[in-house]
Amino acid sequence: MIRANRRDFLKVAAFCSLCGTGAAYAKTGAAGALPVKQIADGVFAFAGVPAMMNGGNRGEICNLGFVIGEDAVAVIDSGGSVAEGRALIDAIRARTDRPIRYLINTHMHPDHIFGNGAFDAEKVTIVGHRNLRRALESRGDYYLESYRSSMGAELMQDIRIVLPTRLVAAVEELDVGKRKLTLQSWKPAHTDNDLTVFDQKTKVLFTGDLCFAEHLPTLDGSLLGWVGQLDMLRAIEASMAVPGHGPVPSPWPDALERQKRYFDVLIGDVRKAIREGVPMMEAVKTAGESERGNWQLFDDYNQRNATAAYAELEWQ
């Protein structure tokens, strides 16, 4: 009750300041198209910066992209802010005037979905994993709250949690006009709502965060589930990959190797600690440590991964 009232108040506040942000956006809009590159015929992608989301980078930390068909455009992830989402739309409009029919969210994390609100005017169908809706329902408010301090009020005021309207139970095809995309829902891995997008024409695979390259993988689902599905992921015959984080494009399936090794080390270290009765608080300080030199953002995420891994593996 109290929270609902407060939320209403916030909405009003956001509305009052719309004129100000509108002007600011018009100023940066034209020059601010997201710098995407064409990686295959009709397939464009943007490489996010390897960093935590903050006001300075507008949340532009993950890789995202779009595929242009003969009738329509499908967008893969909307970015970490409405500002980034709008810049992505500008990038699309600089290349085609075909309608944006689909916005595919590869999973629930803010860097991939905070830009959803930018697509309101495009009448898109937002597509996601069968669990994505539930995941965002239970985390959305927390995401909005917890990113306010790092992203800043100005960016946050436009950001809303916009839920998917079409859920993928297993494998489905999307047709954008003489071009089909294969959407595949995975069992719990990086999260419990990971979805990959495969362009049948060019065999480009958008992995979402099922693949991290150079940027340390982050764990928010099931480590064993992730490891257990790596062979199936590797078996996808892709020409190249757009990983969730890391170089665009990345060679496939080679991009998975370093991630696999990190998981093996982490699992080994954590299992040993559990076996020896080392408490979680101690174990996470050293688990995975030998992988430090191989990754960006190691200090930001390794202990968190070790914590989640410990909680999962001690049930075995």
């Binding site: 917890s146 990113y147 719990p188 009765g277 989640a308």
Partner: peptide, 26 residues
């Protein structure tokens, strides 16, 4: 609390319900 990716929600919701009440003692 560093906030962010790991919201205070179940990481693997289906499994959590499937194993409800299971206990382990070491």
């Amino acid at each position: 609390a560093s906030g962010g990716c790991s919201a205070p929600a179940t990481k693997n919701a289906d499994e959590a319900m499937a194993n409800l009440g299971k206990m382990k003692l070491r």
